[in-house]
Design a binder for these strands. Structure first.
Lengths: 217, 217
DNA sequence: TGTACATCAGTGAACGCGCGTTCACTGATGTAC
DNA sequence: TGTACATCAGTGAACGCGCGTTCACTGATGTAC
């Protein structure tokens, strides 16, 4: 045995099959949405029998939970990478749109209509916080005009969600607006509500992002 | 026969049953989301057999389509009523939030994650335009500062969605922002993404609406 | 007012389907001596 | 190096379920003469 974390062939194989199951699952979600995800259909597509999947996942719920986790993780990674290479709020906004367009159903799995009854695993809140931290970091340097709505005061008093991040109220406000405004444009675009309206969603998104990056007024 | 539009007892009965089917359908959607809607379950709840529903709807798809239509119609009515009693953008924003909170799954049926493959009936675009017109009317009187992002120019050149509404580019921009920004806050709130974050979604919504009502900068 | 007929709401059985999941098993792969 | 054993991936049959939808029918309600 040489050193640590040796991986046996069997472990490698398991990891590969697990990965392929997830891939097929994403394909299926892309094709017919998360509610239509079927274990048997995945197995069929992989040329194996349904029960075989139970070697890899405890059941349908666990698979979906894993996909949700991966989706959060994926966005967090994208954001961290962007930040690491010097992206500001504007850069994060572009990264977000690229990530969303890359796989709309993945975006919806995270930010879309919740299935009544289903609850995401607790550990994704950690990843969600990680995402928020990156945004808060980027929201900090920019100084915008004062808030006239009383929102800053409210946020100053309710900053649990920011953890111990040293952002000032204006940055909290900007980070939140980054989230809600971009989601507003993005989710309507991905849901197809802009089709046939004439304008280019990218321009709308860009304008919204511009106003955020320079200052939320 | 007295006058016009006489309604026979049978017609009245039919209308009642149809209405009850829809009610139960909404209850079911509220409980387990639109994808989980089942004709048999509705029939069971009404104390009748499954096939009986086929007297009232051609099938599951037609029922859902009807619900989508009703949802759009409902929002359009709310907006028209608000506008008729003198509501400005701020009033429309409040009406929108009330309508959404009143039945979150109805909101999601209109603005939520689209089911790949399903297409809303064409005639809802008429209702959607009606909704947009009310917003455009309200967005008109307010004069805000100039746009610095080039969005106004773009919208001036792509105003198909506004029909022949005489709104100027700034109003087009404000109307669109009304839609995307409020949807951003509202959909995240309804999906539960703000729970546990500390702040009050109503305050965030109110602040966003304030900035819209006074001027989109 | 009464009778013959037409309309139509609702039933029950049935079809075919796909689902998630369990279980006892076969057969291949890896491990220990 | 060879043999005995343990591990474990995958199968096939089965269970129970609910779904949407069709079909031939019963029985009540309404209509025409």
């Amino acid at each position: 045995m040489v050193g640590k974390a040796e991986e046996t062939p069997r472990e490698r194989y398991r990891a590969q099959v697990r990965a392929e199951i997830k891939e097929r699952a994403w394909e299926q979600i892309a094709a017919s949405g998360a509610p239509g995800l079927s274990l048997n259909a995945i197995a069929r597509q992989m040329g194996m029998s349904g029960p075989a999947l139970y070697r890899y996942f405890a059941g349908r719920d666990e698979l979906i939970t894993e996909l949700v986790r991966d989706a959060y993780r994926s966005l967090a990674d994208v954001f961290r990478a962007a930040a690491a290479s010097g992206a500001d709020l504007d850069g994060l906004g572009r990264a977000l749109r690229a990530w969303a367009l890359d796989d709309p159903q993945r975006y919806f799995l995270v930010y879309g209509t919740p299935v009544p009854g289903y609850h995401a695993p607790d550990d994704v809140t950690t990843t969600a916080r990680e995402i928020m931290t990156v945004v808060l970091d980027a929201a900090r340097p920019v100084a915008g005009p004062a808030d006239t709505t009383g929102l800053d005061d409210h946020l100053a008093e309710h900053r649990e969600w920011a953890g111990d991040h040293p952002a000032d109220p204006a940055a909290l406000r900007r980070a939140l607006s980054f989230w809600t405004r971009l989601h507003g444009v993005l989710s309507l675009e991905l849901a197809g509500h802009f089709t046939g309206m004439g304008f280019d969603p990218a321009v709308l998104y860009g304008a919204e992002l511009d106003r955020l990056a320079h200052a939320v007024r």
